[in-house]
């Protein structure tokens, strides 16, 4: 913590401890092989950006990490807990891992504040008062405190996504997953959401983020992972990854997204 206070612009290096290990994970939808022998190890405090063409299995991969999707063979361990069919393990993992979705998925029938306090009260069994304090704290952090009593439908897309991030933070997760958090937003709102994510990254949160925001990748990622057709084709430290992509598929992909 102290290091970040002193130097806000430098993200702390990840620790040596592995917090997620994916070992030869395979998944099929019927006959369709979505994930092919995926291997990936994430260290605590590491920030990973996952990119790749549409349909390459990025969403599927991160959704396997909190068991929104099941995988068929291989092994995924999150924070020391083996993710399989055991419901206890699944619940334990979900308490530590939060996900931010492309379409926010806020609860439309609850106010912003109720959206934030719901899980702490029912899952963490926090008292109502504490949950509200926590919620207000994180709402201020995403710079949206004054909207606490509105309904999600009354907010802009960018504001809704920041509420969604705050909702996840209220669970004080150890790991955060982002699935294209800015791709449903109007261009002028992308920055306000990325700013919040950059701040989080610099505080040492373990993050896995599917995104095509290459600026974000360059600024905060420790590693960029490139997926294509269900495989991890290449991964590397961002400067190296963007300057000298090794595989042809990566080169092609980068030339397509960077030409815009």
């Amino acid at each position: 913590m102290n290091a970040t206070e002193l130097n806000k612009n430098v993200a702390p290096p990840p620790s040596d401890e592995d917090v997620i290990t994916i070992n030869k994970a395979n998944k099929w939808y019927g006959n369709f092989h979505v994930l092919k022998d995926v291997d990936l190890t994430v260290r605590r405090g590491e920030r990973i950006v996952i990119c790749g063409p549409s349909g390459s299995g990025k969403s599927t991969l991160i959704r396997c990490l909190n068991r929104l999707e099941a995988y068929q063979t291989g092994e995924i361990t999150v924070d020391g807990i083996l993710l399989g069919d055991d419901i206890k393990n699944i619940e334990a993992v979900r308490r530590e891992v939060c996900m931010v979705f492309q379409h926010f998925n806020l609860f439309p029938h609850m106010t912003v504040l109720e959206n934030l306090t719901l899980a702490p009260i029912w899952v963490r069994k926090t008292s109502k008062k504490e949950a509200v304090e926590l919620a207000m704290h994180y709402l201020e952090r995403v710079r949206i405190g004054e909207q606490a009593h509105k309904y999600p439908g009354q907010l802009s897309g960018g504001q809704q996504q920041r509420v969604a991030i705050a909702r996840s933070l209220c669970m004080q997760p150890k790991i955060m997953l982002f699935d294209e958090p800015t791709s449903a937003l109007d261009p002028e709102m992308v920055k306000e959401v990325l700013d919040v994510m950059v701040e989080l990254a610099k505080e040492g949160m373990t993050m896995l983020c599917v995104t095509h925001e290459m600026g974000f990748a360059k600024e905060v990622a420790d590693r960029v992972v490139f997926m294509d057709a269900g495989e991890i084709v290449e991964m590397g430290e961002p400067r190296e990854f963007f300057a000298n992509p090794k595989s042809e598929r990566t080169k092609l992909f980068l030339s397509q997204i960077l030409s815009h």
Binding site: N66, R95, M99, N105
Partner: peptide, 16 residues
């Protein structure tokens, strides 16, 4: 479906 997924990913049980 996103509403179910949001509930799941926050750690709520099925009945919750």
């Amino acid at each position: 479906r996103g509403q179910f997924e949001a509930g799941d990913s926050l750690g709520l049980s099925y009945w919750q």
